[in-house]
Design a protein around this nucleic acid. Structure first.
Length: 513
RNA sequence: GCUCCGUUGGUGUAGUCCGGCCAAUCAUUUCGGCCUUUCGAGCCGAUGACCUGGGUUCAAAUCCCAGACGGAGCACCA
């Protein structure tokens, strides 16, 4: 009886038990901790705030995974806000906006709304003007270094007590672009003697000479800093819960000063630590990946060696497998290591039942010992292994033997010894050839004969792209008859996604064992 | 230097608020067994953790103090 049949049957016999079952399941399903004070809000409203300075690496998947899962948990609302307010040092990549939204879609989530900070400068300017009226901001022409020195010793800078009229004039000049980069900033007046130096009078707006890459925003020169922009937007978009990294731990306190000036209430905040992923040599940073691609060390964002969402996607790993692993990490504020094996286990679980089997003999590549072609005599002309060992109804593959087969070097039997060619039968090595013995399966059960995969010597050539580099080999003929994008399990090798069958050799991407 | 935060097996996580049901949960990994014409899956089993030292208590992973270790911020980056 299948699970759904069991359920139906139970519903007939004891409806109240089904409810119990549901309640239990619901409890089990909640893998994320409750958000704080959810009851105090009509709707849980959250935002993800990516910087579109490049496509996403794997760590970036945590944001939509966790926020999206909370959205589902609370039937909430999710905004995607591109925080693209630095046209210079974190210069936006015009393609990244869509690439990021595609990645979110791949992970199985959809934002309820998408906005770009660079469309909203006038909103930020208006709030700055209001803040100046409230006595909460001042224009400052100190050099960064000079201000830092004063700030660290708890001294106010001479510009702090300017009258608001002057501040307004100077701010309007900033907006008009009449200062050069570095000449003038607008600071939020917090508490210059606050015991935490990180909270003392922070910059809200600065001048940037480099035009924004988006045409719509190219004329602006006066740009808000993250703490100001993000704080204003969170309030205006009605965000109730902010979930972000520990690098922004002090932001809530900094922005709290602005909220106090405006009489706003700060959202609930959850901070999580950094996530590192094992199994990669390449550091998980957008800039490092860009460098590696430019240097030719990686073939692109979807190179199997790149720790990116695009890479896992090309390898045939489902977004859901990534999301589940990310959600399992929880929202702890300490740094965590995500094991790729966890993503692999999730994915295997999802695809194993529906993935057809095939043979691939690896001949050359990292950690590959080589392959050997050996003549075969006796036995049938072809082997007919099942398409899927658990599903006989899916039929059998047809793998011709053609007088010679290829074996991985490690599978070649010693002279006089036997191996079982999967789907074909038992053979013994005699004078450099493999001779069918006619033994039945009992010899395998007895543990005397290893079972190995093999391929016809003239089978299609395959290039398998892996995290460790490219592996070439020979497959059974049926492999190139599939559609591209199909997942296959190369027996004793691992799962792979067929990528390009028109090229020679045909290309597949290795997913995981 | 100043200020915050954290520390449960290899990895992640539950439990910590409100001390006892915790000789500590679940997942993954690793290893073994069964099954299986592979690997995987499935089933069974094993290994493996409360940062350290004090204190409070009948009782501490949980409360208190001190320390160690780790992380983050103190940017005209996000």
């Amino acid at each position: 009886m299948s699970a759904s049949e069991q359920r139906e049957r139970l519903a007939e016999l004891a409806p109240e038990k089904v409810e119990e079952l549901d309640a239990e399941e619901e409890e089990d399903d909640q893998i994320l901790p409750d958000l704080p004070n959810v009851d105090e809000h009509d709707e849980v409203r959250m935002r993800m705030a990516p910087n579109p300075n490049g496509p996403w690496h794997l760590g970036s998947a945590r944001m939509p995974s966790v926020i999206g899962t909370y959205k589902e948990m609370y039937d909430g609302w999710m905004l995607c806000r591109f925080d693209d307010t630095d046209p210079e040092t974190k210069r936006p990549d015009l393609d990244a906006y869509d690439e990021i939204l595609e990645a979110v879609d791949f992970l199985g989530f959809e934002p309820d709304e998408v906005i770009k900070a660079s469309d909203r400068l006038d909103v930020y300017y208006d709030h700055a003007r209001e803040l100046i009226d409230l006595g909460g901001a001042y224009t400052c022409s100190c050099s960064g270094e000079a201000f830092s020195d004063m700030k660290n010793s708890g001294e106010a800078c001479p510009h702090r007590d300017k009258d608001s009229e002057t501040v307004h004039e100077e701010f309007e000049d900033m907006v008009a672009g009449e200062y050069e980069s570095g000449e003038m900033v607008l600071r939020v007046k917090t508490d210059i003697t606050h015991k935490n130096p990180a909270l003392r009078d922070f910059v809200a707006f600065r001048m940037i000479d480099t035009p924004h890459p988006r045409e719509e925003a190219a004329e602006y020169r006066c740009w808000p800093m993250l703490d100001f922009q993000s704080g204003i937007d969170d309030h205006l978009t009605g965000i109730t819960h902010i979930i972000r990294g520990i690098d922004l731990q002090d932001s809530a306190k900094r922005q709290g000063f602005v909220y106090d000036y405006f009489g706003w209430e700060y959202p609930e905040v959850v901070h999580w630590g950094h996530v590192q992923i094992d199994a990669y040599d390449v550091p998980m940073s957008t800039s490092t990946i860009i460098e590696k691609i430019e240097a030719g060390d990686l073939t692109g964002w979807d190179d199997p060696r790149a720790p990116t969402i695009a890479s896992l996607r090309r390898r045939g790993i489902r977004g859901e497998a990534i999301v589940d692993a990310m959600v399992e990490l929880g929202t702890s504020s300490s740094n965590v290591d995500l094991a790729m094996s966890s993503i692999y286990a999730n994915n295997r679980d999802m695809i194993d039942e529906e993935t057809d089997r095939a043979f691939l003999v690896r001949e050359d590549g990292p950690d590959v010992e080589g392959a050997v072609t050996m003549p075969v005599s006796g036995g049938p002309d072809a082997a007919e292994p099942p398409v899927h060992p658990n599903h006989e109804d899916r039929g059998r593959r047809h793998v011709p033997v053609d007088d010679a087969v290829m074996l991985e070097a490690g599978d070649v039997p010693e002279a006089g010894e036997r191996v079982w060619l999967k789907g074909f039968g038992c053979v013994r090595r005699e004078d450099g050839a493999l001779v069918a013995t006619g033994d039945d399966l009992d010899v395998v059960r007895a543990g005397d004969v290893p079972v190995v995969h093999w391929a016809p010597a003239d089978g299609p050539r395959i290039r398998l792209r892996t995290m460790d580099g490219d592996v070439t080999g020979v497959a059974e003929p049926g492999v190139v008859e599939y559609d591209e994008d199909t997942m296959l399990q190369f027996e004793r090798v691992g799962f792979a996604r067929l990528d390009d069958l028109d090229s020679d050799p045909a290309v597949a991407y290795y997913a995981h064992p």
